[in-house]
Design a protein around this nucleic acid. Sequence first.
DNA 1: TTGAAATATTAGCCATGACTAAATATCGCT
DNA 2: AGCGATATTTAGTCATGGCTAATATTTCAA
Lengths: 244, 244
Amino acid sequence: MAKPLSKAHRTDQPKESAHPPGSEAVDDYLKAIFQLSGRPERQVSSTEIAAHLSITAASVTNMLQKLAGQNPPLVAYEKHHGVKLSKAGKKRALEIVRHHRLIETFLHEILDYPWDEVHQEAERLEHFISERFEERIAAKLGHPEFDPHGHAIPALDGSLPAQEPQALSQLRPGQSAKVSSVSDNDPEMLRYLAAQGIRPGVKLTLSEQLPFQGAYQVRIGSSTKPALLSHSLAEAITVSKPQQ
Amino acid sequence: MAKPLSKAHRTDQPKESAHPPGSEAVDDYLKAIFQLSGRPERQVSSTEIAAHLSITAASVTNMLQKLAGQNPPLVAYEKHHGVKLSKAGKKRALEIVRHHRLIETFLHEILDYPWDEVHQEAERLEHFISERFEERIAAKLGHPEFDPHGHAIPALDGSLPAQEPQALSQLRPGQSAKVSSVSDNDPEMLRYLAAQGIRPGVKLTLSEQLPFQGAYQVRIGSSTKPALLSHSLAEAITVSKPQQ
DNA sequence: TTGAAATATTAGCCATGACTAAATATCGCT
DNA sequence: AGCGATATTTAGTCATGGCTAATATTTCAA
């Protein structure tokens, strides 16, 4: 008994690749490129991607060539000059980001995960949930627009609410703003921010910026004692000025 | 910048396999062997495993040798005479089964999946959820003992409630019994059973077995009109005789 | 403008886990 | 006991997606 053992009887295509090319790794690259290209969109270098994914630049080049060779191509790749996502690549990247942020919200809201733990779990699960699962948790959560860190969840069609949040580090002393989002990939930082009472929606005022970009002193909500934030912390927080 | 890029800085072990040996495929083999060895436990042949996983027997042999060569070994493998799970292999298999059945229950109870769709999704997710996730859904569900199809969920320590369910096909005409479980891997069958009102917990009576193992006529609960079940259907249902 | 440093690509290797084809072992039956 | 059918294993191949080392390109500063 060593027959073909067809698993999804197709009417005998010319070739059938057992390992479909679009898998977990591909998703990770597309998401990385999406997140690194920023807004307005710019080319992303192999080295950046390598650093982001903790792999070597050689591996990245290798993969970028495959992604560019797909039909349709997932990236526009110019040797030595980085990549941009193609239409198809962006679509897929947004699906993954949607998955990620819905899962984070779900873990926090339904399964009571602390907000510093949701990222890691979502990072793994985002590749494996079905459309069905996505639809079910979105419904269960009432089709949320933001995840627990304040990041916008792409809609099914890939659209994102227009937002112009700026980094907290851009504020000038005396200015007030509302916390829009906090970076989600460092659990320790999230615990620290939570302890300071800094989370999306909270209003704060930059009372003073210490010299040499050393630290930012902010007053949170109506509390009395101010918090001190390092520069990298202030870069990891986005704020929007309340109507004005 | 083509440095080591250590991701989990270890104090420089002699060798470091980038692809850890224990992955998705390994889980699938262990689970397959567990499910095929039955009770009382018996050796499982490569061919059986191959058929169960829809791969070739050669691939199975290949993998069994790897599993047997692990430290600790995950299976006891005797060339040409099949395999049995080792202690460690059984432990892992039970973890996966626990994941699978908890996920099925979760999908059904919390996300309102119809019971014929939970298996497929659980089959994928079981490999990727963390211990944390497992613990959270178990808590959310109140530490259930059975999944939606009536299969026992192994406890954290791997223990299973002692049960002696027999196949419905073993009943003799006139006997009554309570449905204990139904096989979960065929969605169409599950839809059929649901339509007949057959699900775990339901009491039924075998009114007649038609000649040549053609079909089983059963009366469900207190309803009037009986259902007809093919032999394979009657094999896919387990029942327990109510106290006696 | 030129050459060293930084960045990126190529070439070649490895493990995983599939596959096919060929060889071999076991079993069932006369 | 022995033969053929069936089951199993071996040997060799392939795609994926990592890696290192060597090479090539781009950039930047003198």
